[in-house]
């Protein structure tokens, strides 16, 4: 069934997008854009792959992926927050740094066997027609990503920590008036964001594709940054954003596999066109909701 296959594909392929979208949402809520998300994903993808192989534990691998993403994000935070460098330029440099170093250190792991996350069908629920296959027959990191989205939403909108985070992005001077440091909050937000991007990369390499290859994210990190706007900096809407992109990929492949007469070049461009069209339509309205501090970055 086309719809079932597309939706199942959207969830399966969307997890590695959902983590970085959540991470970047947190960072941008604090007022920092991290275009190094792509690099953080690559760092996470390689670290998870390597540690998974070397220790024999997929979970240690996932942890290492998150740590690698966090480490690279820390470089971004330091440059931007302590050295006052341009956020956009620094982010791009971080991406290329991640790309280059992972290509170098990953060389000997190309084509190696991987210790991979297996799908864990949820007992009972995975048997339910349609819903079972779409939602309840995935690897643990996929279920965890949905939990992470809900938790992130709760923290951002329902806790004091979240209030401070949003204040850092909207009215840092208010925080200062209360004796709190917006810079410190941003550091934490960027690093947590990077760790989620790293975890997304880890899911890509050790659960979804079971593979490491140079530049294996192929731009997913940039798409994730775009999807943050689509999701209006809302962690719950981020789920829709991530699945929209991967659903478009799944749809184009399902159409091709069914012998569709539509040009395959159009089909291949569809996921990207979808994101760009959605952004074009939504941007003006959505940006009204953008954290105030981002305005200074983008001037």
């Amino acid at each position: 069934m086309l719809i079932e296959s597309v939706l199942a594909g959207a969830v399966r392929g969307g997890t590695s997008m959902l983590y970085p979208v959540l991470g970047e949402t947190i960072a941008e809520r604090s007022g920092v854009i991290n275009l190094g998300t792509e690099g953080c994903m690559l760092a996470g993808a390689l670290a998870a792959y390597v540690v998974g192989i070397e220790t024999g534990s997929v979970w240690l691998g996932a942890l290492a992926g998150a740590a690698a993403g966090a480490a690279l994000a820390l470089v971004h935070a330091f440059m931007v927050l302590s050295r006052g460098s341009n956020q956009i330029a620094t982010g791009l440099v971080i991406t290329f740094l991640g790309l280059g170093t992972t290509a170098l250190f990953g060389q000997s792991y190309v084509g190696q066997g991987v210790n991979a996350f297996a799908a864990v069908p949820v007992p009972g629920l995975s048997e339910v027609p349609f819903i079972g296959r779409v939602l309840f027959d995935h690897d643990p990191l996929t279920y965890l990503s949905l939990v992470a989205a809900v938790v992130t939403w709760f923290v951002v909108f329902r806790t004091r920590t979240g209030m401070k985070l949003r204040a850092a992005g909207e009215r840092p001077e208010v925080l200062e008036a209360f004796g709190l440091s917006p810079v410190r909050i941003r550091y934490v937000a960027v690093v947590v964001g990077g760790s989620l991007a790293g975890l997304g990369g880890g899911q890509l390499s050790t659960a979804f594709t079971r593979n490491w290859s140079e530049n294996m994210t192929v731009g997913r990190g940039f798409v994730a940054v775009a999807l943050v706007i689509f999701a209006a900096w809302n962690p719950l809407k981020a789920i829709g954003g991530a699945y929209l992109f991967s659903g478009a990929i799944a749809l184009q492949l399902e159409l091709q596999a069914r012998g569709s007469e539509i040009s395959k070049y159009l089909l291949q461009a569809m996921p990207y066109v979808t994101v760009i069209v959605v952004l074009a339509v939504m941007s003006r309205r959505q940006l009204q909701r953008s954290p105030e501090s981002l305005a200074r970055v983008l001037g």
């Binding site: 140079e214 091709q256 291949q268």
Partner: peptide, 22 residues
């Protein structure tokens, strides 16, 4: 199935699944 790339593991994973589904 054309992926439009010599190496995009994410696309490959979805492509393989689509073929198996068929």
């Amino acid at each position: 199935l054309a992926t439009g790339s010599w190496c995009d593991p994410g696309l490959q994973a979805q492509a393989a699944q689509s073929l198996l589904d068929q």
